[in-house]
Design a protein around this nucleic acid. Structure first.
Lengths: 228, 228
DNA sequence: CGCGGAATTGATTTGCGTCAACACACGTGG
DNA sequence: CCACGTGTGTTGACGCAAATCAATTCCGCG
């Protein structure tokens, strides 16, 4: 499943130390975690974890993007979350069960850090800063997953896209330009849409001053986008 | 907003000690938490917390049901979760932000325990069993919220209802009978459906051997329900 | 007995998934 | 250099699922 596997080198330790999970740790906990991390390269589209497999480790994304999803009995897939560099996934199983509850797939060539859950559990019992970091990450994920539920239930496709654009829009008003970090296929899944629906949502936002050319999105009037 | 407010008496301490959050604590942490809990009765439909208010406390449901929801700009509401006796809510803000991210309303007369976040934060830093309990609860909530996203995206209304029935169905097969603990209105919201859609889902499940009479639901053949 | 909220049923509309055809960019190899 | 294939995105046609609106019916409770 995974490519070759090695301990974190200096560059990788630097990336790891900047992640939300590791940056608030005590120095001793940080260096211990950096020591037990295993780095691996996974090629685009490779399966990283499979739903139902015994859960022995969680991951942190160093580079690339990872898609978390579940497959229904009739083979359709639903995305749960897309992890960007710095994000963790499967950390909810440290104290949450024995088996993976979803599958994970690299959306492009990715660099991952793997942490053994048992070792981190032991560390969390000894060092309160580790426990606190885990709680913070879990809370963030819970809040953003709740947001996801609400968005799905309350907003239409164009509204979700407008929402997405606004959250990564630096400006408060005026015009802006955004470059999607991944392909539209993946974005559609994140928003709970079929790729065609995303396409249509973009074209319906043209009347609101949104122009799409490849991965680059021009927003004519940010405040116009805010009124849905 | 809240009714009168008192320290937990013996009966309430008993209920609290049995909740998922408190039952795994060290004896000293348990008694400390029981001491700082404030009990309040809230009447049906009363608002318990309001989205956007500064978050100073989280809650544990002793009796009754509590509905967590968010309101969109045009006034429509989406349910996020329904809390049963023994459940906590707003615990995701212990390390997750300064303001409540959703509103909470009593679905019927309810008994709640209120915990000051700052006090629990301090306790979590001192006692690893407190931190561990919080992590377990957060993980559970995260996993069930992920399930919710997947269900919304993958299943139709009758499938969601069948799913709901199966999760509270004691039997593996044969026939069973379930009594809904709350009104159908609330169930509809939990499943992300309009009340009419829930009603139609029930009537479409009649052909699968499901009979509804008031709050009592008869399932003729559990295994038939399992194939959607 | 009669009232009011909850639940059901029907008719209509809307949003989006699905299928299919097509445009476009990219790289490969003749 | 162009023909070709592949993978990605767009557009159109169609159908279904569920929201919405409106009209009853059911039920619990004073």
């Amino acid at each position: 499943m995974l490519d070759k596997n090695h301990k974190a080198n200096i560059r990788e330790r630097g990336l790891l130390a900047k992640t939300a999970f590791l940056k608030a740790l005590s120095p001793t906990a940080l260096s211990r975690l950096l020591d037990i991390a295993h780095i691996s390269m996974v090629p685009s589209r490779a399966t990283i974890i499979r739903e139902g497999d015994p859960a022995s480790a969680f991951y942190c994304v160093l580079t690339g993007y990872v898609r978390l999803y579940r497959v229904s009995r009739d083979g359709r897939q639903a995305d749960i979350r897309v992890c960007s560099p710095g994000d963790m996934f499967a950390e909810c199983l440290i104290y949450g069960g024995e088996k993976y509850r979803f599958s994970a797939q690299a959306a492009e060539n990715a660099n991952l850090a793997r942490f053994d859950m048992q070792e981190v559990r032991e560390l969390a019992e000894q060092d309160p800063t580790v426990a606190k970091s885990i709680m913070t990450v879990l809370s963030d994920h819970l809040l953003s997953t709740m947001d996801c539920v609400v968005n799905d239930r309350l907003h239409t496709a164009p509204q979700r896209v407008a929402d997405y654009l606004l959250t990564r829009c630096p400006m408060e008003s005026g015009s802006a330009s955004i470059r999607l970090p991944y392909q539209k296929n993946l974005l559609a899944g994140m928003l709970g849409l079929a790729p065609e629906a995303l396409s249509r949502a973009f074209s319906s936002l043209r009347r609101t001053g949104v122009t799409v050319r490849g991965r680059v999105i021009q927003i004519g009037d940010v405040s116009a986008l805010k009124d849905v």
